[in-house]
């Protein structure tokens, strides 16, 4: 049975009419129309679908959209600073932390949550923070470096 609910994504309320079994990922991509969030394994293993719910990372492929009512959802589109890239996005590009790019939106969301909670993470803390995100291109080291460089830049600013 369809239900009319409101989802708040990147600070904007979107009215959507959806089946209660629909996952948040598919609603963000097809009803809200924001396709930065990716579907990878669709099984809560790879982290490509990571979004923030009230600032904490969740796998949107395995979370019902109706569960997210009344919560603040943040997707990769929401981390842009106006038209400018977030320092994390810029550093991922400059450090070579992006190859095919499919895992990148999920990596950015996990790293954003990590840096909110732990502004100066150790390498081990970065690796734990990103442990729910798989990357099959980079070997992770350049992604970890990009996160640590971002932490250092944000601490200086």
């Amino acid at each position: 049975m369809s239900e009319s609910i409101s989802l708040r994504v990147n600070g904007i309320d979107y009215p959507v009419t959806i089946d209660q079994g629909r996952n948040l990922l598919s609603v963000i991509r097809t009803e809200v129309g924001l396709t930065g969030t990716k579907e990878g394994c669709d099984d809560c293993e790879c982290g490509a679908c990571m979004v923030l719910l009230d600032g904490q990372p969740i796998n949107s492929c395995s979370y019902l959209a109706v569960q997210a009512q009344g919560r603040e959802i943040t997707t990769v589109e929401g981390v842009l600073q106006g038209d400018a890239l977030h320092p994390l996005q810029r550093n991922l590009l400059e450090e070579g932390g992006v190859q095919c790019g499919f895992c990148t939106p999920g990596m950015i969301m996990s790293a954003t949550a990590l840096l909110q909670r732990t502004p100066a993470p150790t390498e081990e803390e970065v690796r734990i923070g990103l442990s729910g995100n798989l990357c099959r291109c980079t070997g992770y080291s350049k992604i970890v470096q990009a996160v640590q460089r971002t932490a250092a830049e944000l601490a200086d600013s």
Binding site: C44, G47, L53, P57, N59, Y63, I128, S131, G132
Partner: peptide
């Protein structure tokens, strides 16, 4: 799980 699993 992962940080995401542990949060929810």
């Amino acid at each position: 799980g992962s940080p995401a699993t542990r949060h929810v």
